[in-house]
Amino acid sequence: MQQMNVPRPKRDPAPSRVAYRIHRLWLTPLFRALMRVGVPAFMVALVVGLYVSDEENRDAINGMVHDMRVAIETRDEFMVKLMAIDGASPIVAEDIRETLSQDFPISSFDLDLEQMKAQIETLDAVKSARLRIQSGGVLQVNVTERVPAVVWQSPEALTLLDNTGARIIAIGDRSERSDLPLIAGSGADAKVGEALELLTTAEPLLPRIRGLVRVGERRWDVVLDRNQRILLPADDPNLAMARVITLNDAQEMLSRDLAVVDMRIAHRPTIRLQQDAAAELRRIRVFEMGVTQE
């Protein structure tokens, strides 16, 4: 009993020298920052670094990432199953399909719409295209085709051009598109707009016009039936054309037996008669002068 009453010696409340020093060290701001930020950061970097430094682990990570990516990309929601082409004639649509040569179904992540649009627009018959992926997995292609404005007879072939002079398609025979005016001569395709304007000016003569010829890549000749030609100047051919039409209206000039109306020099329009007409004229003149040849 006596033993139990003896109070145990109290623990020394004083910190040991080591504990005191450690506590002081811990209260040092730099050390504290190092332990709380530096060491954990270093440990994480170390573990990650060690793991990644192994080739196998790197491959495994890459493979996993790739698999996840594929799994997401091939979800039904992202798959494109068919392509719908609107605004193109069957031939052009076929061309587009051929150009793109895209197999469906395909993930929409793998479709490069910008590039496809550029590809489609390289086709001659296509003026512009708009592509979008619609819900339900449809790749919608809206195409604006070029509208043929003239037939161009180049040295090589007959070609349809639109009003900007861009090539649309080659045709085998003029009669396929007899509704369109014909232009000819090298460099004519670059001036389709001018040609169309001329044709508008020459409206009264339209039934007689066979076509326009670009001469020397500089000026236009209007070719009429009955082998007649109107030679227009390089500058302001419309005005010259208007003058011709006025002359024609006043004197039915073109219904006469002319070969050429030369308007190239504005202040001195010239006409040339046909071979027979010239001979006939000379004969009449001689007859009027009372000279008999015989």
């Binding site: 004083a14 910190p15 020298r17 005191y20 506590h23 002081r24 209260l27 701001p29």
Partner: peptide, 18 residues
């Protein structure tokens, strides 16, 4: 020395500063 350490450590702990 131990008593001084006790006092200083406790005060440092309260101040949270060395």
């Amino acid at each position: 020395e131990r008593a001084i350490r006790t006092a200083v450590q406790a005060a440092q702990k309260m101040a949270n500063q060395r």
